[in-house]
Design a protein around this nucleic acid. Sequence first.
DNA 1: CCAGTTCTCTGACTAAAGTCAGAGATCATG
DNA 2: CATGATCTCTGACTTTAGTCAGAGAACTGG
Lengths: 296, 296
Amino acid sequence: MDPAAIQQIRRFNRTVAEGIGTFTDHFLGRGRPYGESRVLWEIGTDGADIRELRDRLGLDSGYVSRMLRSLERQKLVRVRVHAADRRVRRAELTALGRRERAVLDSRSDALAARILEPLTDKQRASLLAAVSDVERLLQPSMVRFAIERPTSADAQWCWRQYFAELDERFENGFDADVALPVDVREVTPPGGALIVARLHGRPIGCGSVKTPRGAPAYLKRMWVAREARGLGVGRRLLAELEGYARSTGAKTIHLETNRALREAIALYRASGYVEVPAFNAEPYAHHWFEKPLTQA
Amino acid sequence: MDPAAIQQIRRFNRTVAEGIGTFTDHFLGRGRPYGESRVLWEIGTDGADIRELRDRLGLDSGYVSRMLRSLERQKLVRVRVHAADRRVRRAELTALGRRERAVLDSRSDALAARILEPLTDKQRASLLAAVSDVERLLQPSMVRFAIERPTSADAQWCWRQYFAELDERFENGFDADVALPVDVREVTPPGGALIVARLHGRPIGCGSVKTPRGAPAYLKRMWVAREARGLGVGRRLLAELEGYARSTGAKTIHLETNRALREAIALYRASGYVEVPAFNAEPYAHHWFEKPLTQA
DNA sequence: CCAGTTCTCTGACTAAAGTCAGAGATCATG
DNA sequence: CATGATCTCTGACTTTAGTCAGAGAACTGG
């Protein structure tokens, strides 16, 4: 890759890290550990389930629990049991907590304002345009792929989105009960895997692969959210799934698909899949594809 | 300020912070505390004085000392006394340290490459253009002003730059021994102040003000580095100096200047200074200005 | 209804990061 | 050449951040 381009990106990283540093200091500067501020912020005005907090902040369960106790002692937060599931607890801000959060909010505003303040109107407009370009073009590099349990809430959500889209796009609709079933065990290691693509922590796509021993790997239910298309997520998701299949020793991967899914078919062809005769009786399928998995 | 603009900048901050976070993790992931990595990095291939490290990293003297001991134990760093001043110590990388630093370097490169990698050539070009716009337009907000001792190395450097520029621009050159002298005490609180403007830690301008009790404040030796002009540094430096003078109770501020310094004169006029009769015998001056300091 | 899972919490740790108060060597200056 | 300032270092701390194991309550699916 072009070394000058890399240097420029590195300079940008450094510059922005410096700016962000002052943001962090700012956020901090409330006589409260940064961790607690983050939790306070993340709870939001509507409250949040504790498991959600843990997840979004990527923190240990015991650690979050302790921070919540501390915030409770400061009368900023109230924790109560979840109405529907009494194992789960929900954190909510007290009136005082809400005020504290508003202070953090206005500090973020103040920092942003400090960036804009010394600029002329014209410069401001250029900055906003450039900033939105950078954000858009940074997105592809911020997509993360990870194997997840197919029973997780997000994986289930992806599958629902996927089914809804098939139902909309197939000429005669789609009913998951009619299609060949996918057993949870078949897409959980070592039987296979389900990979979720995320942007800023939110799922934007998923795909799964079954890896039966001594048989071709079998790609299932690949989906990319509409708003995330054009970022190359599909291509990379496919590569991740193939990589997993390859790691289990699979020599070939195959899949079936419906003729309505034109972009998917184009992606498969571009990725080296070739059409083969039907290898199963999936009622919704019109095309069957196969690709050899060369060991890297 | 436009709330939408502020929200956009905040979103940008958040997005980039997420990216920077992965950078930090990357940097870290060497079985070594982040602090030590930073020190290792900052020493650089040419070595660095310890006081310089402390300064650039903003760390406690004891803390840095301990980290250096640890890096010495790991045979990455060698500390020896400074040739010219035996109080000062200089840290240098060993061959092993240099190799370690090269690893950090290549990790930074890899991160930058990961940002560029999923983009098409056209997108890459747009990103680089946008990134350079953002950097340029972020600069004004990253300038920091601070009162410093006029005896500090950076303050002295600024004065030398200033004198050199005057010598170049005045029709008959400039000799600091001929001009009215500035005593160190007169521009050190409480007698006055010297303010240094910095960008990324490097000095890019300075200015000073004498604040004799019961007399007008007196602005001296204001200078902005050529490469930092057009960022509004002069205007802000002037405002900082006036602010200091105001804080000491001064009711008026005055200054003299040479006709060759056209931008400076324009700045003074734009900032509310009006020309007055000569109030001293500065041999290099052609204009004398004065401005009332209204209490904010 | 029971076995396994999920969720939160507590106790007992560790490591990293940073602060503070001197001590001792060295230098600059009147 | 005494005085004060500068620089680095050590010892003695504290706080923050985070990990790990396991207990107990609540839920879920067969």
